[in-house]
Design a protein around this nucleic acid. Structure first.
Length: 181
DNA sequence: AAAGAGATGGTCT
DNA sequence: GACCATCTCTTTT
């Protein structure tokens, strides 16, 4: 399986997001196929980057292909991949994956949950794959990075489901959520 | 099946 | 002090 290169991520988040469908997230000894993503931009009222760079969102303004992890609701983490160019403030939120390998590790990190609920949400995904603030700023494109995104040759769906983003109160009309049917 | 509410803490105004 | 790019459990249809 091929590790995605930085050139893949160095484009607009709205271009990268649909192409991430069916790619593989590798982390914590497990592998999951990406089935739902959302795009965020700086010129986008729903984005953390909308009001400029802060301590929390600094990673989002950095290099493409780097993981932006943030903590929210007092208990959940969400994982994004930075896209575009340095200073842009763009990212793609990884919202859901389906288990491909290392499912026992996923179950161990999400005890008591049915297999279908192991990583079918952004907070659940981070819990299942053991992602937290320690991974913020991690370069997915580095040759030895412990977290990365791979391509096993399965193409993105020709006709993904496209809709409104979830859990936001502004910018709700932008159709920047993509998922597998 | 759908709707509601509580948990829980970092971040920014 | 208000607001969360959420999840889970409980209550109601």
């Amino acid at each position: 399986m091929r590790r995605l290169r930085r050139t893949f991520f160095a484009r607009a988040s709205t271009t990268v997001a649909p192409e991430l469908l069916n790619k593989l997230l590798v982390a914590g000894g497990s592998v999951g196929r990406i089935v739902e993503v959302e795009a965020y931009m700086a010129d986008d009222p729903a984005s953390h980057a909308f009001r400029g760079q802060t301590r929390r969102n600094a990673t989002m303004f950095g290099k493409a292909g780097v993981l932006y992890v943030y903590f929210t609701y007092g208990m959940h983490h969400c994982a994004n991949v930075v896209t575009g160019s340095i200073g842009d403030g763009q990212a793609v939120l990884l919202r859901a994956v389906t288990p491909v390998a290392g499912i026992d590790e996923l179950r161990a990190r999400r005890p008591g949950r049915p297999d279908r609920s192991l990583a079918d949400g952004p907070g659940k995904l981070c819990q299942a794959f053991g992602l937290d603030l320690r991974h913020d700023g991690l370069d997915l494109c580095a040759s030895e990075a412990p977290v990365w995104i791979g391509d096993d040759g399965v193409p993105p769906p020709a006709v993904p489901l496209i809709g409104q983003r979830v859990g936001i109160s502004v910018g709700v009309d932008l159709p920047w959520r993509w998922r597998i049917q």
